[in-house]
Design a protein around this nucleic acid. Sequence first.
DNA 1: GCCAACGTTGGC
DNA 2: GCCAACGTTGGC
Length: 153
Amino acid sequence: MNYWLFKSEPDEYSLRDLAAEPGRTGRWDGIRNYQARNFLRDRVQEGDGVLFYHSACRLPAVVGTAEVVRPAYPDPAQFDPESPYFDPKSTAGEPRWFCVDIRWQDEFARPVPLAEIKADPELQEMVLVKQGRLSVQPVTPGQWRHLLELGRG
DNA sequence: GCCAACGTTGGC
DNA sequence: GCCAACGTTGGC
């Protein structure tokens, strides 16, 4: 059982978009960064906890949590020429990109903004603080607990 | 919209 | 395999 932080641009796919999916379950796809891909493919497991983070928006923040309900499988979008995530170099036999399915779990009573995370002495070791751009990143149990506490408002 | 940080590409 | 050029991410 591990904890993760997943980033999404809310204009593309927000926590509420996930909540509106059938079964509150959606595909986490479109990851096209090798470091993030490796975490998804090799480390993310069913039952893992996910901090849902909104990026590239008015208030970058952790807004809630989700649970991994299906571990890595090839991202179908890489084979679809119509998709912006199409990758002509990827083959069915040797897929390059992976996705997982996640289920909505909770929306925080209060979003926890990036600025607050950066200012929190307990959260200085978060990958979010140290390496801003990674879209799938590990979170420690202590960081997870602390974020949930902050999100209770 | 700017720009810093960082990842990827491709010539050599 | 180096590295310059270029593209992307994402905070501000």
